[in-house]
Design a protein around this nucleic acid. Sequence first.
DNA 1: TTGAAAGCGCTAACAG
DNA 2: CTGTTAGCGCTTTCAA
Lengths: 379, 379
Amino acid sequence: MKESHFQEQSAQPAAVRKGHMVTIYDIARAAGVAKSTVANVLSGKGKVSEATRQRVLYYARELGYRPNLLARNLSQHRTFTVALILPTIANPFYPEIMEAIESILRQRDYQTLFCNTHGDFALGRQQMERLMSRWVDGYIIMGSSMDIADITHYFRQGVPIVLCDWQENESPVGIPQVTVDFYRAGQLAAEHLLALGHRHIAVIVDEPQQHLRLEGFRTTLLQAGLELPPARIALGDSSLESGYAAARQLLRPDQGLTSPTAIFATNDWMALGAMELVLDQGLRVPGDISIIGLDDIVVSAHLRPPLTTIAIPKTRLAQEATELLMAQIEKKIEEQGSVLSEAHEGTDGAAQHEEETAPLRLVPPYLVVRQSTAAPASS
Amino acid sequence: MKESHFQEQSAQPAAVRKGHMVTIYDIARAAGVAKSTVANVLSGKGKVSEATRQRVLYYARELGYRPNLLARNLSQHRTFTVALILPTIANPFYPEIMEAIESILRQRDYQTLFCNTHGDFALGRQQMERLMSRWVDGYIIMGSSMDIADITHYFRQGVPIVLCDWQENESPVGIPQVTVDFYRAGQLAAEHLLALGHRHIAVIVDEPQQHLRLEGFRTTLLQAGLELPPARIALGDSSLESGYAAARQLLRPDQGLTSPTAIFATNDWMALGAMELVLDQGLRVPGDISIIGLDDIVVSAHLRPPLTTIAIPKTRLAQEATELLMAQIEKKIEEQGSVLSEAHEGTDGAAQHEEETAPLRLVPPYLVVRQSTAAPASS
DNA sequence: TTGAAAGCGCTAACAG
DNA sequence: CTGTTAGCGCTTTCAA
């Protein structure tokens, strides 16, 4: 009896309420069925007769129904959202990786929420807290955007987290991670310069974050019988400006060292800065000084001269990171299911994770030779 | 009586449930008060005695309470999230503006949700649909990331939207907008080149999106008695690569025109491409050809030669856009309040907006002279 | 196959 | 000042 009543009214109220949200309840009323039936139709879950199914679908379209994700997420404890936390966006490397991760995530029907911590740990924690409150399903944390202590804290609580392109000095305890074989990257850079015949080599590095790159580089030089004296190491903070400043320092004829004939900057952004300084000094690249970077950001290929660099396969990085994260999210969802029935207490659900050795995927870097490196001028 | 009962238990259950979410109800139980009292304390709204206040706060901290924004948002119809929709992230201009907008929004306690449509209108609509599902309070839509028809559709429904740096050809109907005075930008570029003495000028433009820039440029040349023949206009799609290709086309000695001595690219990214081509051809910048861009992206200043360009005040753009959006959001919130009591039907709540002339903020561009432009070689 | 009802966690009147 | 009572819109048993 009620059905007919509502049926009659259906067309009217719909039009009137236009502009405000249409809920499944509205559809239910219009179609003369129960809320849950509508839900079933919409989710394709429970069994519904084709007739009512069509009717519900009809009214849904008719009324301009749009599901309310907040409500859905609230009741499902799941948001299909992943946060990507990065230290900065000023270094083009990050936008590039953002793009890669975002599109992969989108294919999996996940929203990506970008967070820029500006390298500020306090801000990072603050943002993280906020995200936690929003029930983001998982986190991909990059570079040195957050304090590893904070990250570990969250991970211990069972929050799905993947470290991506993590800086090599801090050893994350049991947190899944995908990163580049930075030691190898350092080796590649050194090998390239050595092969060209360079003997006076300097490096610009963001210590201690990029220690491995430096070590790979230094070790390779050593094996070739070359020391890397402190005066040949300049510190940067990964920014272009710092690369510029560091290069100036390297070229200042201090402590009687001959000027270097080649510079390895541990990221392209600093390499650009270094190159700028060298050119500003009236020197030529690679004529007087060779420069090699690391990252292979897009602009590097379009500079004058185009930058030789150790490339990081960004898409690969993005894929692996997503995979690792998805695995954790799925696992957590499952566990939640069982927690409802069995009442495990004492051990946090996450504790078991920690025991297992966390997956670590190492992506191999590779050399891209362009025109910023060449054999040193015969002195 | 109940109070004491719960008080006793409080410590235990808290510990046991650790790892799972703590709700205000848990706090209420622990502190022996009602849910709403806890809510009052936490929100600082209603009056609560200092004693209970402290007690509640104590247990909140003790239990590791973290508010559930999903729940809060659901009941408040508000997410404190703004979506920033942009066409691409490959052109560094966008990351730069992202950064600006994100930090302004953060100061206002809003989260920014970035959406990259990759210049694909279908994808744009799809993403928008998803966001509309009650994710965000408002939208800042950039460049030509979406179909203006779609945008208008949403705006008519009362969705707070601001167009930012909108491409000048399409005239948005009554949608608040903040953009750059692109016509003026074109003028500035032309004036600069004319002042340097150039007479053979070409332009690379992303038509029809950047028509105003072209018009400002063309008009100024005309006033100086210079035509801009079709052969001197090359089309690009705003990408660096297209700038490269367009420049090649301009330099090809077609239809008997002398080679241009200056090129205006309507954005820096294309200008970089153009510069690359020119250099690749063995020509010199600005020796043989001057190049001027538009945007003033960060890298432009670090190129060889550094790029002369018409700068867009990005922070200003970001501020104005945010302001305009906030105004709409606030207004909408108010309206929602009143809609509850008075039952306006017939007119959509948004209809009234449309009648008013939509605010339009025009930000002035300015010339930044660097080394990619100079007087033409005397021929 | 369909419907009723109980949440999800928080907010917001409105009573005591 | 504090507690009760309804929601927000959707999901999910569990009956009918």
